[in-house]
Amino acid sequence: MKQQNYHNHRKFYPPHHFIYLPLLILLEIFGMYKIGDDPKNKLVWILFSVVIFLLFYLAIMVRQHYALGLQNRMVILEFKQRYFEIFNMRSDETAAKLKFDQMAALRFAHDDEFKDLLYKALHENISGDEIKRSIKNWRADWLRI
Score class of each variant (00 low, 15 high):
Y13F: 11
Y66K: 08
V62A: 09
M103V: 00
Y6R: 03
F18E: 07
K11C: 10
E93Q: 11
V51N: 10
P39Q: 10
F100K: 07
P14H: 11
K42N: 10
N125D: 02
G128K: 01
M103L: 08
D112V: 06
F12P: 00
M74K: 08
M74S: 08
M103Y: 02
Q3N: 10
Q4I: 15
E78P: 00
P39F: 06
I86A: 10
D129V: 11
H16Y: 12
L77T: 12
Y6W: 05
L122K: 12
K11V: 07
W45I: 02
V50Y: 05
A121K: 04
I135H: 05
R133G: 08
K115S: 11
E93V: 08
M61I: 13
L21M: 15
D112Y: 05
S127G: 06
K115G: 06
F87I: 01
P14M: 05
D116L: 13
R90T: 07
I52P: 00
L117I: 01
N88C: 03
I29A: 15
Y33A: 15
I60V: 10
N8V: 12
F30Y: 09
H9Q: 14
F53G: 05
H7W: 04
R63M: 09
L55F: 06
V50L: 12
Y13G: 09
K97S: 09
F12W: 07
L54P: 00
E93P: 00
E113S: 08
Q81Y: 06
Q64G: 11
K40Y: 07
S49T: 15
L23V: 05
A109L: 04
Y6T: 12
A67R: 06
V44H: 09
N125T: 05
A59F: 06
K11M: 11
Y13Q: 08
A105I: 01
A104M: 01
P22C: 13
